[in-house]
Simulated scan of single mutants.
Amino acid sequence: MLVYIVSFPLVIWFMVYMTLRKIMPKSVNTFKLVCDAGVVLWFYACAVLLESIVETNVAWLLLAVCCAIFPINAIWQRVRHEEVVFTKMFVHGWRLLFLFLVPAHAILFAIGIAKHMIH
């Protein structure tokens, strides 16, 4: 099961989306909910891939980068002269994590495949 979570989080994410779409009436709310839940899936997959590539536990580094998104988002809201609302900052930061982790997973997956082919 671990191999599937690390290798194919998009497939698992899509299956959860299709299941929730049958249950929930509005597809927009379903997409937001699945994206929010998908952050946990992609974070775990990226941490495992990163650990297998560098062969040491560096999940703390990924966690630090992900945690840095929240204050950067607050600073960005302040620069745009918006009031910093912590609930809004958390929701936007969480969704930015989704947008950060999905391409990071694809890059780490490609690097892992290339490393495996070289060795």
Rank of each mutant, 00 (worst) to 15 (best):
L2Q: 06
I5G: 05
S7I: 03
F8M: 10
L10P: 12
W13I: 13
M15Q: 14
M15Y: 11
Y17S: 12
L20E: 12
K22A: 15
I23K: 04
P25E: 13
P25V: 10
S27Y: 08
V28E: 15
N29F: 08
L33D: 05
C35L: 08
G38C: 08
W42A: 00
F43C: 03
F43Q: 02
F43K: 00
Y44K: 01
A45M: 01
C46W: 00
C46Q: 04
A47E: 01
L49R: 03
L50V: 02
E51G: 05
S52I: 01
I53Y: 08
V54I: 06
T56L: 11
N57Q: 10
V58I: 07
V58C: 05
A59S: 15
L61H: 05
L61N: 04
L62G: 03
L62I: 06
L63Q: 03
A64G: 01
V65Q: 07
V65S: 03
I69Q: 02
F70W: 11
I72R: 09
N73I: 10
Q77N: 07
R78L: 15
R80M: 10
H81Q: 13
K88M: 12
F90Q: 04
V91G: 08
V91K: 02
V91S: 11
W94F: 00
R95Y: 14
L97P: 01
F98L: 05
F100E: 00
P103Y: 12
A106F: 12
A106R: 05
L108Q: 09
F109L: 13
I111C: 09
I111H: 08
I113D: 04
K115S: 14
H116G: 11
H119M: 12
H119K: 09
